[in-house]
């Protein structure tokens, strides 16, 4: 049985301009210790998917209208708020995008890293702070004992993200959701942070959902990949499938739009034409149809389902496209 099994998850937001279908019938699963990347541009529903799994969708205006999120044999969507609070931070932890603002400026680092231990392991604060020293050492913060009394503003962005990772790992969760953990960081620091995350999740035996829009990150750190567009998964498969043999026009477009070091420098990057769709007014057929080079009349009226191509490689497209000659 997989560790996490998301089945038909649908999350909507009621806004003044109508109902926004942020996540539409999304299904994926995750084995223990596996890293799954969810890729997509801004507004494709990656973060909302993660927040739905954790039950952190603000209600109202948000609501999860359908689906199941099976984790360790329980449907997380069925749990009460209190039961969910026991899961969060203990069994599932989250790392946020902005290390600058996701640490509390008024509390010391020690209190924040020790808090999950105090909360879930029922440790006293003295013990929790001891645990925090060990955690800070794990994320390679130099001289952790003297850093307990420091405040977040005394740390750099990369250091803060290390602190966030330490917080997330505190209770050795089975699943870590990292929502664009390196977006706000320098390129050189990004690699360090991802390397650290990869090593620590392996050491702690945690599975990870890595949300990103950086395909370079995905190639190196993910076992499997889901490509999302306008709230739906359009292609999924192993990292090798997605990189070696992308089959959805959107994935192909993404691949063509990233620069590569190992290719002719004269090659021009090919952007994906047009704008991401308005989620409050999606076209009846395939959401990608207005921007697709391979569009047919069928695409505009009928919505393609996610279907297997080979093994676990799946795509939601009528056309049979490939970059293989």
């Amino acid at each position: 049985m997989p560790l996490l099994e998301v089945d038909g998850l649908t999350t909507r937001f009621r806004t003044e301009r109508g109902v926004v279908q942020a996540v539409d019938n999304v299904s994926f699963d995750l084995e223990e210790g596996e890293t799954l990347a969810i890729v997509g541009e801004s507004g494709s529903g990656k973060s909302v998917t993660a927040m739905s799994v954790l039950g952190l969708i603000p209600r109202p205006p948000g609501e999860i209208t359908a689906g199941r999120v099976m984790f360790e044999g329980r449907d997380l969507l069925e749990l009460s708020d209190e039961e969910m609070q026991e899961v969060r931070g203990d069994r599932i932890a989250m790392i946020f995008q902005e290390p600058m603002s996701s640490l509390n400026p008024a509390l010391t680092i020690g209190l924040q890293v020790g808090e999950p231990l105090n909360r879930h392991r029922k440790m006293s604060w003295t013990e929790s702070l001891k645990g925090a020293v060990g955690l800070l050492r794990k994320v390679q913060i130099p001289d952790p004992a003297s850093r307990l009394q420091a405040y977040p503003h005394q740390f750099s962005g990369g250091m803060r993200q290390r602190v966030m990772i330490a917080m997330a790992l505190a209770c050795q969760p089975k699943l870590i959701i990292a929502d664009e953990p390196t977006t706000a960081l320098d390129v050189t620091v990004q690699a360090q942070i991802l390397e650290l995350l990869k090593n620590l999740t392996r050491e702690f035996g945690s599975a990870m959902i890595l949300i990103t829009h950086d395909l370079g990150v995905v190639a190196r750190y993910a076992d499997r990949v889901c490509v999302m567009y306008a709230g739906r998964i359009v292609e999924s498969g192993t990292a090798a499938d997605i990189y070696g043999d992308p089959r959805h026009p959107y994935t192909l477009g993404l691949m063509a739009s990233i620069p590569r070091l190992d290719e002719d420098t004269q090659r021009r990057l090919v952007p994906i034409e047009g704008q991401p769709p308005n989620l409050a007014a999606l076209p009846p057929g395939c959401s990608f149809a207005p921007r697709c080079r391979y569009v047919t009349d069928r695409c505009r009226s009928e919505r393609p389902a996610l279907e297997a191509i080979a093994g676990r490689h799946m795509k939601a497209c009528f056309a049979n496209v490939s970059n293989r000659v």
């Binding site: 954790l54 952190l56 209190e82 969910m84 609070q85 026991e86 899961v87 969060r88 931070g89 203990d90 932890a93 989250m94 946020f96 902005e98 603002s101 996701s102 640490l103 509390n104 400026p105 808090e115 999950p116 909360r119 879930h120 966030m164 917080m167 997330a168 505190a170």
Partner: peptide, 13 residues
């Protein structure tokens, strides 16, 4: 602020 969401994400009551 994000840190309030972060506190929620570690299961704080």
């Amino acid at each position: 602020n994000m840190y309030v969401h972060a506190a929620q994400s570690i299961g704080a009551t």
